[in-house]
Design a protein around this nucleic acid. Structure first.
Length: 645
RNA sequence: GCCGAUGUAGCUCAGCUGGCCAGAGCAGCUGAUUUGUAAUCAGCUGGUCGGGGGUUCGAAUCCCUCCAUCGGCUCCA
């Protein structure tokens, strides 16, 4: 007999060789029917795999993330089986589960897969799932594994096996398909009831653009057809929040082929929105001791040679701007930091001056690869809410914390609750990708790690994601379709101060090297606005709304009163406008609702007589009649409350 | 940059197995209407069918190429 410990601490005894399904059965038949996999002593196992020692066991169903992962990983195998049967001779790369579903990378050889093939594959998958094929785990030696895939002629699997150690290789067989896989998998395919293959894309083998591009098929499966329907509806809903769609509908920004790809044009309403955000941050930064600076949009190539940007990115940038002078060249600035270093260098500094914080909404230009451009989130010209803090080494942590405070204030004001904090370190195996000494890197990295700990930030750490001059802490937020974007960023940099020979005189009357902190709470105005649009689905908080109140006269007769109301709004710092079209009230209300204007002020005979407005709130309906002053007060309260929350 | 898909009026879309003058709704304009909480009616305007090249008696429709956009990959100072 063995002891099985449950998550609640309960311990029960079972025969050695018991499986997770057996254990589930001992609890309830219903649970047994729903167990997809189980965690056994910290590892996720097949629900059918015998347990022969004392163990802590946790059962996973569709309601658990790990259960879904098992389902989707098994679905990838099922899809591979279907594809192999339909298109014999294809070779397989890797096929993992992902956050929402799974994919499989496939070398389809001569025969190209197209979207029209997906329906056939889905159909075959359902047929195979109904066969209730079990997933059979087989321990094999390295030689056996190699023999199998050599015979099959699958060079991708052979490459993977060659990197594995003998004795820890398993294959999984389901139906006619055998895969190199560490598992775990579903008890059988019958759990998969609904299948949707969502897209088809090219993906480099092992993520290396120098290697062959395979065909990646994305899909998702569910244990019930209804859940697939719900998922598809959810996807449709998410698409409605897409900032590219809303940006067009709400006339916030546009792109023009004539101006150029990735170069956003801010329309009046978008510019107003952005202006409110900038205004807010400027206020916060003033309080935090930042000094505004302004620098030009171009800089001499030598500036970027000094900073190291030229060596690192020169070949991938916009070409330099030449002048009538032979050999003279300028770059559109891709970064503000070199300019700010030169501002620091304008005069000598004492330790008593530090920290110095230079802030600039600086527009930068980067030649992003054409395939990377994406609405406002990835563009070729954008404005960073940039600032550079020059401080002594022992001020790093407090300055870093000050920046975190600003970022948290912004996120809170905009109700961004779901963000991920990421610490990006350099990859010690690829030191040639970075500039600067090991010692400085270690100092900078440990400073960030300590701050994260001391601030109690629940940060994830990713090796190899650092900037080329220093490690960073990024704040990531998801867009409507679940893609993660970096917004705020804080970067510790020991390198630029050296390259620009920045110094300050210490209390010992000796020259010392300051440390630089690069930081941008929004990241870029473009990306931040994009994420903001998706976050609030175009229904901006009042303080950011480009148009706060629209006056809707019932008929032309009340035009004069409408103008009086507008005058009042203007004097009260409320952004208002009048819909003076010869339309019925219903039509004007409908259009204002579609434009997501926060407040609609209906004015007619009664209002004119009493000097009031009938207030209708977007998405809430009629709020009743308000005295003008009363209305202004209500709006100002709402504005301040939201901004300072 | 790579793989795949898409590109028709300001917007959303139909037409696309090659063949009447390329259509609809919304928006816009003109007129009528003077309207009370999510679409008043009528008329009109508007399109190099993404650009260029080719095949054909004939191309929005087929082929090539470039550009842009979309889904991914790679990249992201």
């Amino acid at each position: 007999m063995i002891n099985i410990t449950f998550p609640d601490g309960n311990i029960r005894q079972y025969e050695s060789g018991v499986t997770a399904i057996d254990i589930a059965k001992s609890i309830s038949e219903g649970l047994a029917r729903n167990v997809l996999s189980a965690e056994v002593n910290g590892q996720v196992w097949d629900a059918t795999r015998p347990i022969s020692t004392d163990a802590t066991v946790r059962l996973f169903t569709w309601n658990d993330t790990a259960g879904k992962a098992t389902m989707w990983h098994s679905s990838a195998h099922l899809m591979a089986e279907a594809i192999e049967q339909l298109y014999p001779g294809v070779k397989f790369g890797i096929g993992p589960d992902i956050e929402n579903g799974f994919y499989y990378d496939i070398d389809t050889g001569e025969r190209l897969l197209t979207e029209s093939d997906l329906a056939d594959i889905e159909k075959r998958m359902i047929e195979l799932a109904k066969e209730k094929q079990s997933y059979l785990r087989v321990d094999v030696s390295k030689k056996e594994a190699l023999d199998h895939f050599v015979q099959k002629g699958d060079e991708y699997k052979i490459e993977l096996i060659n990197e594995l150690n003998d004795g820890e290789i398993t294959l999984y067989k389901s139906g006619t398909f055998t895969d190199l896989c560490r598992g775990p998998h579903l008890p059988d395919t019958s759990f998969i009831k609904a299948v949707k293959l969502t897209s088809l894309a090219g993906a480099y083998w092992r993520g290396d653009e120098k290697r062959k591009q395979l065909t990646r098929v994305y899909g998702i499966t569910f244990p019930k057809a209804k859940e697939l329907e719900d998922y598809l509806i959810l996807l449709e809903e998410a698409k409605k929040r897409d900032h590219r769609k809303l940006g067009k509908e709400l006339e916030l920004f546009a792109f023009s082929q004539r101006v150029g790809a990735g170069l956003p044009l801010w329309l009046p309403k978008g510019a107003m929105l952005r202006d409110r955000l900038e205004h807010f941050l400027k206020k916060v930064q003033k309080e935090a001791g930042y000094q505004p600076v302004i620098t030009p949009h171009i800089g001499n190539v030598n500036l970027y040679k000094t900073s190291g940007h030229f060596d690192k990115y020169g070949k991938d940038s916009f070409r330099p701007i030449t002048t009538p002078i032979e050999g003279e060249a300028f770059f559109l600035k891709p970064m503000n930091c070199p300019h700010h270093c030169e501002i620091y260098n304008v005069k000598p500094h004492s330790y008593k001056d530090l920290p110095i914080r230079y802030a600039e909404f600086g527009t930068v230009y980067r030649y992003e690869q054409s395939g990377e451009l994406h609405g406002l989130t990835r563009v070729r010209g954008f404005t960073q809410d940039d600032a550079h803090i020059f401080c002594t080494p022992d001020q790093i942590k407090s300055e870093f914390k000050g920046v975190i405070k600003i970022i948290m204030r912004i996120f809170k004001a905009l109700d961004f609750n779901e963000f991920v904090t990421q610490i990006s370190l350099r990859d010690p195996a690829n030191k040639e990708k970075y500039i600067g000494s090991d010692e400085n890197w270690e100092k900078a990295e440990s400073a960030i790690k300590e701050v994260a700990q001391e601030e109690g930030l629940n940060a994830i750490t990713v090796v190899g994601e650092a900037a080329f001059y220093g490690p960073k802490m990024d704040f990531m937020v998801k867009d409507a379709i679940g893609r993660k974007w970096q917004l705020g960023t804080i970067q510790v940099d020991y390198n630029l101060p050296e390259r620009f020979d920045l110094t300050y005189i210490g209390s010992d009357n000796e020259k010392h090297r300051p440390v630089m902190i690069h930081r941008a709470p929004f990241g870029s105005m473009e990306r931040f606005v994009a994420v903001l649009i998706e976050h609030c689905a175009g229904k901006f908080p009042l303080w950011l709304s480009p148009e706060q109140a629209i006056i809707l006269p019932i008929s032309e007769k009340y035009q004069a009163y409408a103008e009086k109301v507008l005058q009042f709004l203007n004097n009260s710092d409320i952004r208002g406008l009048i819909d003076d079209r010869s339309e019925k009230a219903g039509k004007k209300i409908r259009d204002a609702e579609l434009k997501k204007i926060p407040y609609m002020l209906v004015v007619g005979e009664r209002e004119e007589a009493d000097g009031t407005v009938s207030v209708r709130k977007h998405g809430h309906g009629d709020l009743g009649t308000f005295d003008l002053n009363q209305f202004a007060l209500m709006l100002h309260e709402e504005e301040t409350k939201l901004q300072n929350d």
